[in-house]
Write a protein that binds this DNA or RNA. Structure first.
Lengths: 192, 192
DNA sequence: GGGAGATCCTAGCACCGCTAGACAATCGAG
DNA sequence: CTCGATTGTCTAGCGGTGCTAGGATCTCCC
């Protein structure tokens, strides 16, 4: 049995290598540069090996997205846990969110811009995605305001952050006034 | 001279045909389906003809984006002009924006999602883009609130709308609660 | 009418995602 | 220990992509 176990371990290790390499390449040169040929060359295997782990490029993007979702949730919880008071927590959350998007553009794209073949806002949505949304909601629920559904409020706040993140990243918004935008957004949306 | 003028007119006409066909194809089957070969076949010319009008596919996307920006500005101004009071105008504006995005997904992508090679938020930004932003600002300035820069406020509000539009379109948000989201957003962001 | 120039198309490049089929390494049964 | 079966991997290739070089044709002007 031990031999099979070792093989399985090696296989899992190689899968991690694929995802990590895809992510690295995407961060370095953008997702367009992540071709199956280049990816195969970097992991020092032939192309078909990729397809023994994933159905195709889309699933690789999905794997990077899931990894990113987990990290993002951790980053957001870390940021909010060291802030005092609901409003400060929301500000810290917003900053952490936008910071993550700016520092990991390729991962952010995999999560929210590209098609990774993942289900969103459904029962069969993968756990990491649900958890990232949950991390948002934990902090945002405190400032949703009376009579406002926390889920709805989280969606709206999230959409605003997402808009800021993507428009900034594609050059539609200049990054200079990022901080006042955050202040204004939190100031208006957060209720009490 | 008349012959040359006719030729120029025909050339301009063909250019319009290219842009219109690209847009139509993108709306029907998505931008991935807009290949230079398919596009060339639809306009009944060979591929190289496209390159005598545009540098490449990117510029064709850019042309569709500019066309869309003009239409979007018209749609937003039409929606706001028939509303009474600043708050009603803002609601109408938000609805018009999201409605345009939902009805013209390919055009919206060309504008804000894809790379059309256009400059944004700069001096050499094409006029239609500036004007679309101006259309937003006209209505939003009224509700920016005291001491808040109208430009900054417009950026934040626009980002929120953009987030709602894109997350909804890619299935990250369910379209069911679109209206309450708009209400909540306007309610919180619009000041007086 | 004939040469010059504009106009357009055929053919092809390098690359893409993805896969069939050959080959080699490894395993388990006798 | 040997030998067939299974597993794993690679080479080669398919149909597609954006884009372009070079030749053919057509039109205009002298």
């Amino acid at each position: 049995m031990s031999v099979q176990e070792r093989k399985q371990r090696e296989r899992a290790e190689r899968e991690r290598l694929i995802v990590a390499t895809a992510r690295e390449l995407a961060e370095q040169q953008g997702w367009d540069a992540v071709t199956t040929r280049r990816l195969a060359e970097r992991i020092e295997y032939s192309q078909p090996v990729l397809y023994s782990h994933f159905r195709g490029k889309r699933e690789i993007i999905g794997a990077v997205a899931l990894e990113g979702a987990t990290e993002m949730a951790v980053a957001m919880r870390a940021a909010t846990s060291s802030a005092n008071g609901p409003r400060e927590r929301v500000t810290a959350l917003a900053r952490a969110y936008l910071d993550f998007a700016a520092r990991n553009p390729a991962v952010y794209d995999a999560l929210f811009q590209l098609d990774g073949g993942l289900a969103y806002a459904q029962e069969d949505t993968p756990e990491p995605l649900k958890d990232a949304f949950a991390a948002l909601m934990e902090t945002l629920s405190e400032v949703a305001g009376d009579g406002v559904d926390p889920g709805l409020f989280t969606e709206v706040f999230w959409a605003s952050l997402h808009g800021l993140a993507t428009l900034t990243r594609t050059g539609r918004l200049l990054p200079e006034h990022a901080e006042p935008r955050i202040q204004l957004l939190v100031d208006r949306l957060a209720k009490p």
